[in-house]
C-alpha cells in the first residue's frame, strides 16, 4: 500500500494538483492531505495600511479579518472538494487542517508517517509566503529519496520523477 501526502499552502488553481495526486493512487493506496491555513496575514499588509496609509488598527484588523476568513473559507471548500472526489473514487483519504506549525514538525511528520510520494502546492502570494507560511522545503527535498512534485499555485515548478 502506497501513501501519498499532499501539502497545501495555496488553495488557488488546485485542479491540476488534485488530479495529479489522485492519478498517483491505486485502489489500496492512501491519500493524506495537509492543509496549512494561516490565522494571520503578513505584517506587510498591516504596515501598508497603518504606517503608509495612516489608518488605525481597527481598519487594519477589519481588512485582515476579511482576508483570513476568506482564506479559511477557501481551505474548507477545497478540502470538501477533495473529500467528495475521494468518495467518488472510493479512495482512502485522511484530511488534516493545520494552522502555522514549525517546519521541523512538518518534516518529522513526513518521515514518521512513511510517506511514499509527496506533492506540495506553494503560493506565490508574497504577502503570505514570505512571512505567514514561511516553509522552505528545498534542503529537505534534496536529502530525501521519495518522489515529489512542487507546484506553485497549481503550476508545476519542480519534480524529481
Amino acid at each position: 500500500m502506497k501513501k501519498v501526502m499532499v501539502l497545501l499552502f495555496s488553495f488557488a488553481e488546485l485542479d491540476k494538483v488534485i488530479n495529479h495526486s489522485f492519478n498517483l493512487l491505486n485502489d489500496d493506496d492512501e491519500l493524506e492531505v495537509v492543509a496549512i491555513v494561516g490565522e494571520e496575514v503578513s505584517s506587510s499588509l498591516s504596515h501598508l495600511i497603518t504606517d503608509v496609509g495612516f489608518l488605525g488598527d481597527k481598519v487594519s484588523s477589519d481588512v485582515e479579518d476579511a482576508v483570513v476568513n476568506e482564506y479559511q473559507d477557501r481551505a474548507e471548500k477545497s478540502l470538501e472538494r477533495i473529500t467528495d472526489r475521494a468518495e467518488v473514487d472510493s479512495q482512502h483519504l485522511e484530511v488534516e487542517k493545520l494552522t502555522k506549525i514549525s517546519l521541523d514538525e512538518l518534516k518529522d511528520k513526513l518521515v514518521r508517517d512513511d510517506i511514499d510520494h509527496l506533492v506540495i502546492n506553494y503560493t506565490e502570494d508574497q504577502f503570505l509566503s514570505n512571512e505567514v507560511l514561511d516553509y522552505d522545503f528545498n534542503e529537505f527535498l534534496s536529502n530525501i529519496n521519495m518522489p515529489y512534485e512542487v507546484y506553485f499555485d497549481g503550476e508545476l515548478s519542480k519534480t524529481n520523477n
Partner: peptide, 25 residues
Amino acid sequence: PEHAVAALLFPIIIEIATTLELEPL
C-alpha cells in the same frame, strides 16, 4: 482618504466574490 475607501469596500467585494463562487487566480 482613498486608503479608507479601499478598506471599507474590501469586505463587500470579498462577499460578492464568495457569493459568485469565483475562484482565485
